[in-house]
């Protein structure tokens, strides 16, 4: 999978990702708000690719980064329906290529002593970290643009993935394109 070239932007994504758009939704930090969001997606038939939720620097609000599948519904309708939720304070659409997107993966890979050096070398090249080493396995982490995580996950398959967890992406607009 190729990262888009020529945009000169720090945001990186797969070309195929144009099917997906990232929305950064600021919501009131109240119980049940996530259920309202997911119920809306389900009720209106909007598909979501990933969802990440965490509090913001202001304790009254949480930020939801949601990657929506535009094959299931037009982006405009998704945004307008989300905006009708009383607990949704703000919605920002991050255009593909105009945002910095990051995702964290932690993964346990089977790797006996004979393959460790090779694996660590590839991990270093990708910018990942070794979290733990066992007799026949290693636990690794990698932070990066989702496309790079995809690539690295693909590469790890030859070793044998024992367990894998990705966070779903979080994103912010590029500084110079911040509107």
């Amino acid at each position: 999978m190729n990262e888009q070239s020529g945009s000169g932007s720090a945001g990186q994504h797969r070309v195929a990702d144009y099917r997906y758009h990232t929305l950064v939704v600021t919501v009131e930090n109240k119980s049940g708000v996530l259920a309202r969001l997911s119920a809306l997606f389900s009720r209106r038939g909007f598909n979501i690719e990933s969802l990440a939720v965490a509090p913001t620097d202001d304790e009254r609000f949480s930020r939801v980064t949601v990657v929506v599948d535009l094959e299931s519904a037009p982006l405009e309708q998704i945004i307008k329906q989300l905006d009708k939720l009383v607990n949704v304070v703000n919605i920002r659409e991050l255009h593909p290529g105009h945002a910095v997107e990051r995702e964290l993966m932690i993964v346990t890979v089977s790797a006996g002593p004979d393959r460790r050096d090779e694996l660590v070398e590839q991990l270093d090249r990708a910018g990942g970290k070794v979290l733990s080493v066992g007799a026949d396995a290693m636990m690794l982490s990698l932070v990066g643009p989702p496309a790079r995580i995809d690539e690295f996950e693909e590469l790890l398959r030859q070793y044998g993935i024992i367990e894998l967890q990705r966070t779903g992406r979080v994103a912010l607009a590029n500084l110079d394109e911040d509107d």
Binding site: E76, Q77, K80, Q81, D83, K84
Partner: peptide, 8 residues
Amino acid sequence: IDAAELGK
């Protein structure tokens, strides 16, 4: 008055 109706 409901934005979501416009273009739905």
